[in-house]
Design a protein around this nucleic acid. Structure first.
Length: 501
RNA sequence: GCCGCAUUCGUCUAGAGGCCUAGGACAUCAGGUUUUCAUCCUGAAGAUCAGGGGUUCGAAUCCCCUAUGCGGUACCA
């Protein structure tokens, strides 16, 4: 049985790269009929941010990624939050000490910092490792009595790498990665504050929770050898590893960061986030008008493809097609245009009813009365020109309110001496209309244009300017039919008056 | 600095030694549809496969070197 996990730290809003990592875990699990768990890794109390955990849960809920076990849904391996599992980790650290795979270290952070500075001054680097630990202050160099005494104060527990040993990490995406223990440092497993570090807690929990595949970001690849050693030290079977390529910023290289989003005008987070300390707001995909299906599809294809030309895929299709060996090895630049295209595409796939609620909300806000039938009609008319769910009002406003200003460029270009005269005539003509059907009205107006031997575009554009305020929008007679002859006449009168000024 | 990973059109990518005069999508440009703006349709342009050496009858695909980019190098995750 495949069991995978997504294990974020609640240090702020979930980055879109993290969302993709979780998506791949989800697709992999579903494809294999396995389970996906959500575990919160909050072993660093100094970085805890209130609301972050709730944010993560809400984000995946919006995106349609369900967990089989986790902080919010429970499960046989509860608790799923590391801060609630604290007493557990100490015994595993002790086990490693007993087995000679770890040792106590008493060097203070200041002392270590000093060593680093000295090394830097000599253009070299300091690392707590197989070569230096013999000259440092730890249970390997101190007498048992001294160790006993020092254990009463602050200390950490460090992993004891074997000397000069090649460690092979078998990565499902990258193949074999070999690293020698000589260049690895003796990582702290247990901090002086009595809490485990990521490395210890992560391995212990993955084992206890019976994780079979660890699918995580590439930034973890350098510490994968340590994790492999940890499994060996515990004499546990290690899970399979797969390190995903990074999500890069659209311009230049480098990891996509929050700043890039702000700078280039696209969200880096699934949901809007307000920093509890600075009150600073970061935009989210949901609030920016993206459909969750579009975000999922776009994200899935950033670093993975089904091996054919298919690009539009539902969650079900993604699950069906997903496999880790189709994941690419190099980082993918985020492409705003492609994201926009996906969103437009998914909006077209929606029924009018599914798109209506944001428009209802806006109309209510503006205190405009409109029936459901009217709203659905308008949506069906403008749908194909909408790219984001935030654009409804700018696409439909002229169905509900008369223009208050008229595009000066259009006036300059189209509004001639006799335009007012002709519009007056058309106004009169419309008043004689026997039906408010668009075909009938259309015939009336085109008939007039022909009779007067006028230029079609000339009159139509001015009429549009009067009704919409610009040369934009759907079929003119759809608009006339919707707002009615009475309102059309009113807008013509208003336009003639205003533009004459 | 050291260690690791990567490198095919502007971008995401297809490609598993001959199917590659390198395919698709987004973006771009040009036409078409339309009373406007969009949508939509058609087409074009766009990559000497980072560079250099090998291996081979044959290499984008295998090996080596170099360059560049990225990641890591915390009592963060």
């Amino acid at each position: 049985m495949v069991r995978v996990r997504f294990a974020p730290s609640p240090t702020g809003p979930l980055h879109i790269g993290g969302v993709r990592t979780c998506l791949y875990n989800y697709l992999f699990a579903k494809k294999q009929n396995g389970k996906l768990l959500l575990r919160i890794e909050d072993t660093d109390q100094t970085r805890f941010v209130p609301g972050a955990e709730e944010y993560i849960i809400e984000a995946f809920d919006w995106l349609g990624i369900q967990f089989d076990e986790g902080v919010h849904v429970g499960g046989p391996h509860a608790p799923y939050k590391q801060s609630e599992r604290m007493e557990l980790y100490r015994e595993f650290a002790d086990l490693l000490i007993r087995r000679g795979w770890a040792y106590y270290a008493f060097d203070t952070p200041q002392e270590l910092e000093q060593r680093r500075k000295e090394a830097e001054a000599q253009k070299s680097t300091f690392q707590y490792d197989t070569q230096t630990r013999g000259s440092l202050c730890n249970s390997l160099t101190l007498s048992p009595e001294e160790v006993e005494e020092r254990l009463k104060g602050d200390y950490v527990i460090r992993f004891k790498h074997p000397e000069n040993q090649d460690i092979t990490v078998n990565d499902l995406i990258r193949g074999e990665v070999v690293i020698n223990t000589r260049i690895l440092d003796d990582k702290v497993l247990f901090k002086s504050d009595g809490l485990p570090t990521y490395h210890l807690a992560n391995i212990v929990d993955d084992h206890l929770m019976e994780i079979t595949h660890v699918i995580r970001g590439e930034e973890w690849l350098p510490s994968a050898p340590l994790h492999v050693m940890l499994y060996r030290a515990f004499e546990w079977e290690a899970p399979q590893f797969a390190h995903l390529p990074l999500l890069l910023k659209p311009d230049g290289n480098g990891k996509l960061s929050k700043r890039d989003g702000d700078r280039l005008g696209f969200p880096v987070f699934p949901l809007e986030w307000k920093d509890p300390v600075t009150q600073e707001i970061s935009s989210g995909y949901r609030e920016s008008g993206y459909l969750p299906e579009a975000v999922i599809n776009m994200l899935a294809l950033l670093g993975w493809n089904p091996g054919n030309d298919q690009e539009v895929m539902s969650m079900e299709e993604l699950i069906e097609q997903f496999s880790l060996d189709k994941v690419s090895k190099s980082g993918a630049k985020f492409d705003l245009d492609k994201a926009r295209w996906f969103n437009h595409h998914y909006i077209q796939l929606c029924e009018e009813e599914q798109l209506a609620s944001p428009l209802f909300l806006i109309l209510k806000e503006k205190e405009i009365e409109a029936s459901e039938e009217q709203v659905l009609k308008v949506i069906s008319l403008v749908k194909e020109r909408v790219y984001f769910m935030t654009e409804w009002w700018e696409q439909v406003h002229y169905f509900f309110v008369a223009p208050t200003e008229y595009n000066p460029d259009v006036i300059k270009k189209r509004w001639k001496e006799n335009t007012a005269e002709h519009l007056q005539a058309i106004r009169q003509l419309l008043l004689t209309a026997t039906s408010s059907e668009k075909e009938h009205l259309h015939t009336l107006v085109t008939q007039y244009i022909q009779d007067q031997q006028l230029n079609m575009g000339q009159i139509m554009n001015c009429l549009r300017l009067a009704l919409v305020g610009d040369t934009k929008g759907v079929d003119l007679f759809e608009i006339v039919e919707f707002i009615g002859v009475e309102e059309t006449v009113r807008r013509i009168e208003k336009a003639i008056l205003e533009i004459a000024k």
